[in-house]
């Protein structure tokens, strides 16, 4: 029993089709609210964590303990004038931030969240091929960054876009290779091995324990995808001012900003679903959502520490790292996974 079915029951007097459409709309709305709230909490936690690591206090003026700071910031961004560069390529320029943000929210709709007490799961998409959907949507986000960089007619932004392309190509292949290993292992135990839910439910040990190399490769790919400090090549602030988002202001900039934080959260959720068992935990199954959030929160904190303690890697070193180390490691991981799968099948 999940939230979708409960909502459909609620609307069932309106007829079969209408009740399902309404149920989907309401659940999507619920999900957007969930994403927004988790982003706000995450940015607040990041700012407080960064402040404490640097022996500062952090936001503490707006609201109790500065809890409303992010809302104030968002209002400020909305209220700001949108400065548009004169030579921009209009449509891509305006489309790019929306693309980043919408694809981020879309990616959240695909993840399986696990049960939350009597409410049940609020997973929106019920499909047999959720992994393909998920990584398809994830691949849209970098396109938004590239579009932003190319369309804003700025040399810094263009360089940022070029770097973003080079970076994306070099981390997405190892990422997919390590996902492939998981699908392969799951296929030995479940017929629908492309569905995230059945991947989780069919495991007897979290995949992270079985293939730590895959976890390592995938986590690094997720760090690179969210583009924060060791790999924030697209918008390296000390070199390219702000990279692809140099010419953006107001809420359009805010979308890039939230896109980055959202990617950290999304990446942590995906890692915990694929490698750390996701909603499964030692206690009863109705706590699945809580377990997922706890696992994701720990990964988010690790990501923040990585962000705060590492300098930026050079673009050619990163491409080298991606092609010469990550891909071979992912291949080895694939072979190991094959061996494990064979053993598992027996």
């Amino acid at each position: 029993m999940n939230i979708l079915l409960r909502l459909q029951e609620l609307f069932s007097p309106l007829g079969h089709l209408a009740s399902y459409i309404l149920a989907y709309i309401f659940e999507s709305l619920f999900l957007v609210i969930f994403v927004t709230i988790s982003l706000i909490v995450m940015i607040y936690v990041f700012r407080k964590y960064m402040a404490r690591v640097q022996q500062r206090i952090g936001p503490n003026r707006v609201g109790k303990f500065g809890l409303l700071q992010l809302i104030a910031d968002a209002l400020k961004l909305v209220g700001k004038e949108n400065i548009l560069p004169k030579n921009r390529d209009d449509l891509p320029y305006k489309l790019a931030p929306a693309m980043v943000f919408v694809s981020l929210v879309l990616a959240f709709t695909i993840l399986p969240y696990g049960d939350f007490f009597y409410l049940g799961s609020f997973t929106v998409t019920h499909s047999e091929v959720t992994i393909i959907l998920l990584f398809g949507i994830i691949a849209i986000m970098p396109i938004g960054e590239v579009l932003a960089g190319i369309s804003s007619a700025n040399k810094y932004a263009l360089l940022g876009a070029l770097r973003a392309v080079a970076k994306d190509v070099s981390f997405e292949i190892p990422m997919m290779l390590s996902v492939l290993a998981i699908v392969m292992m799951a296929s030995a135990r479940t017929p629908s091995s492309l569905s995230l839910e059945s991947i989780i439910s069919s495991e007897f040990l979290p995949y992270g324990i079985l293939e730590p190399i895959g976890l390592f490769v995938f986590f690094i790919s997720m760090v690179a995808r969210a583009s924060y400090t060791p790999f924030d090549l697209g918008e390296s602030d000390s070199e390219l001012v702000s990279g692809h988002s140099t010419e953006y202001s107001g809420m359009r900039f805010g979308m890039f900003y939230m896109g980055m934080f959202g990617s950290i959260f999304l990446g942590s959720l995906i890692v915990s679903i694929l490698y750390l068992g996701g909603p499964s935990g030692p206690l009863e199954s109705s706590l699945g959502f809580i377990w997922l959030i706890i696992k994701a929160a720990i990964l988010v904190l690790i990501s923040f520490t990585v962000w705060l303690s590492m300098p930026r890697i050079r673009i050619d070193k990163f491409i080298n790292f991606g092609w010469k180390y990550l891909i071979p490691i992912a291949m080895i991981n694939l072979i190991l996974a094959g061996i494990i799968t064979l053993g598992w099948g027996l």
Binding site: A51, R52, V53, Q55, R56, I57, S309, M310
Partner: peptide
């Protein structure tokens, strides 16, 4: 080295802030 650097950074979370309001 990366992990020990991360530990050095994160150990300051338990220290008192030095800023004055």
């Amino acid at each position: 080295g990366l992990i020990s650097g991360m530990l050095t950074v994160s150990k300051y979370i338990f220290k008192k802030p030095v800023t004055v309001q």
